[in-house]
Write a protein that binds this DNA or RNA. Structure first.
Lengths: 224, 224
DNA sequence: AAAGTGTATATTGTATACAGAATACAATAT
DNA sequence: ATATTGTATTCTGTATACAATATACACTTT
């Protein structure tokens, strides 16, 4: 933990939430590395708060699968083996499959338009080579589909799964040569959704997820 | 919160874990009702601990979807509308479908035997009319299948979903006339698993879950 | 050297104190 | 009567103090 974590002091949120968001982002960006210990006093000092909100934020990170705590030993950033990632991806595939099929029935015209707009923005970000926008629009693309399911619990679950994958996937998105395929895959998904063709949309999504899976697993394999 | 919650003082677990288990069980058994406020001081006094472990336990209950907290207002036992339950069941159906298909490939001979033994125990418990055993063996039946997936993250997710359903389903299990169908459904699942017939096993599980779904939704509808 | 023991230190676990926000309710004004 | 304000009270949010445990490391023993 070499970097200066800094709180984004949003006056009216409980500190635990602010701390949670801060630590979460640090983990996702890789500033806090897998296996790194999350020591309460240290974090409290660094963030200028007491241990109480730190502890509560850590409990929340556990929820998300981003931290693991061993009683009387403390918490650390969750490590992920290739097997762990395979497990997560297996679940994500099943739920994304569900999401996209439900979305097929329920997606509104307005959501479809947002989806296309997001896809366009994604392409523009790719052309501009703006990594943070690329990531943001990729996330938004999938979020629109998730929201179209009209199942908030599913949205939360999928966001959570994606989060666990993304902290490795960011590496992948740095490689420009991967963008064209992503764009094609997204377009295929949108086309299938427009046609409300469940089989096609499920195939397209499965293909998209599996391609991600390969890449992410390679990254983990390299790290290990 | 009229009943006396009592801690099961397991010397070496952090109090937050003991409190968590205690509150969790109280919610699942219905001793703490949906919508009931979880007030820190009150709970702390009742359980004979300070607010700190109570607060952390509440954060953990949030994880499980059993509590909801509103900043500066406090926590309450999560309410569930029929729509919420439909959302949960939709997810559970997808994941149980995944679980049972993976189990088809991976289940070991020993696990199959445990499954049959559990089914037998379930039937005996039904004959004896022992509700707590009926519930326990029903849970175990599904747990064996979950574990056969060799995907611990999936096991946790499914246990969590089941938990959200079970606190309503307990009502249903009190009605003896429902048992014969449960037994038949379980048998069908085991048969299909033995044959490693993925389609049949998926159909059987889907049927089992959907029947549950109807019952649970009726119970909620009555409550509302 | 290797294994074990003792002690200092670091870290988590728990209780408590205090500050600030939400709530309930009475008093007042409209 | 209804709405509004003020105030007491209850509750959460946060910091901090103290206790219990784990860890590291020097020291002893074999």
């Amino acid at each position: 933990m070499s970097e200066d974590l800094k709180l984004n002091m949003n006056a009216y949120l409980p500190l635990r939430d602010v701390v949670f968001q801060t630590l979460r982002e640090a983990i996702l960006k890789g500033d806090l590395r897998p296996g790194e210990r999350l020591m309460e006093l240290q974090l409290a000092a660094k963030l200028g708060v007491s241990r109480t909100p730190i502890r509560e934020a850590i409990r929340m990170l556990e929820q998300e699968g981003l931290a693991v705590t061993i009683p009387r030993k403390g918490a650390e950033v969750a490590r992920m083996t290739e097997k762990d990632m395979e497990d997560v991806l297996q679940i994500r595939e099943a739920l994304d499959d569900l999401a996209v099929q439900v979305a097929c029935d329920k997606i509104t015209q307005e959501q479809l338009e947002r989806l296309m707009a997001t896809m366009k923005n994604f392409e523009l970000a790719v052309q501009a080579g703006d990594l943070s926008k690329i990531v943001a629009y990729d996330v938004e693309f999938h979020d629109v589909i998730y929201e179209a399911t009209d199942n908030p619990k599913l949205v939360i679950l999928l966001s959570n799964l994606r989060e666990q994958i993304y902290r490795y996937r960011v590496e992948y998105l740095k490689e420009k040569e991967n963008y064209p395929m992503l764009i094609v895959e997204h377009e295929e998904i949108v086309q299938a959704l427009k046609q409300k063709n469940k089989e096609r949309v499920a195939d397209a999504m499965r293909n998209h997820i599996r391609n991600q899976a390969e890449v992410v697993k390679n990254i983990i394999r390299e790290q290990e």
